[in-house]
């Protein structure tokens, strides 16, 4: 699988009302949605979650196919969770017995329940990254976490680290590609051999890559200093985040949704 196939954490350019929401609102609403998935007790209540998520997906105008690609890298994790639940839940009516493993009705129920929860969780969180530019997410995080700076949480520094990481990932990928090619031209073999040989073959790649990373870090630190960087104090921002009507609606809808999910625990019907 090529790196570019991973949609988890990738941005899908668009102009929908979901794309335009304030990143802080998107982070908070996504967080609320993720909590709601753990509040839910029954399959029928999951319908609420699916309805909520489905509406947001429809509004975002991102093709469902594209979102579902986000499952690819974690499908193994989901199956593993389901299998564990299937095999290790031992309460309820026994349906089959294979040596030490028993499969029960409760087990099947739990497996499906957990599987669905994970799928909804991944769809929800990838929808946030698909509709928000990484740099906006970083800014939103910084703003949301800034009250915690008083109790010593380095909100600005964390956001700066993320910004720089985002900036240099493509640079380091290019560098990796170049070094691999250069060493291949000198007869290095990154593909064949035992695990031990493969690990050894990585040295000609990793040493230059680290040297490059340190060189970049040194250069960048100096460039940032030259541009008057001195931490978060006294710093202003060009992009001012302002909450609009859309954001108010989004928050209202999410609050109503959470209320309904909590209510669903009280109502045996749902």
């Amino acid at each position: 699988m090529a790196v570019r196939d991973i949609t988890l954490g990738q941005y899908f350019p668009g102009e929908s009302c979901i794309h335009r929401l304030d990143p802080r609102v998107k982070i908070v609403c996504t967080f609320v949605y993720l909590i709601s998935l753990f509040v839910v007790k029954s399959f029928s209540a999951f319908l609420l979650c699916i309805l909520f998520l489905g509406t947001v997906i429809a509004l975002s105008k991102i093709p469902f196919k594209f979102i579902s690609k986000g499952l690819k890298p974690v499908i193994f994790l989901i199956i593993l969770t389901m299998v564990i639940n299937l095999f290790f839940v031992s309460t309820g009516d026994v349906l089959a017995k294979l040596g030490p493993i028993t499969i029960t009705k409760d087990g099947i129920y739990r497996a499906l329940f957990m599987g669905l929860r994970l799928v909804l969780l991944i769809f929800g969180s990838s929808l946030m990254t698909l509709t928000t530019k990484p740099i906006e997410l970083t800014d939103g995080m910084e703003k949301l976490l800034s009250p915690l700076a008083k109790i010593g949480l380095p909100a600005h520094e964390l956001a700066m680290m993320m910004t720089i990481a985002l900036r240099f990932i493509p640079t380091l990928l290019d560098e990796t590609d170049k070094i691999m090619k250069a060493q291949t031209a000198r007869g290095a073999d990154f593909e064949n051999g035992s695990i031990k040989e493969k690990a050894k073959a990585l040295i000609p790649l990793l040493v230059p890559l680290f040297v490059s990373a340190f060189r970049i870090a040194g250069d960048l630190a100096m460039a940032m200093e030259a541009r008057c960087y001195h931490g978060g104090s006294g710093r202003t921002r060009m992009h001012q985040m302002k909450l609009g009507k859309g954001d108010a609606v989004a928050i209202a809808v999410t609050v109503i949704y959470l209320a309904l999910v909590i209510l669903s625990r009280q109502l045996p019907l749902l």
């Binding site: 170049k178 070094i179 090619k181 250069a182 060493q183 031209a185 000198r186 007869g187 290095a188 073999d189 040295i203 000609p204 040493v207 230059p208 040297v211 490059s212």
Partner: peptide, 30 residues
Amino acid sequence: RKVGIVFQYPEYQLFEETVMKDVCFGPKNQ
């Protein structure tokens, strides 16, 4: 193998402990 290529900024691909070992890398792989 008879076609050798020197990349741009080739010094960024050096990795061995000594100059001798680094230059030997190609012949060793041969």
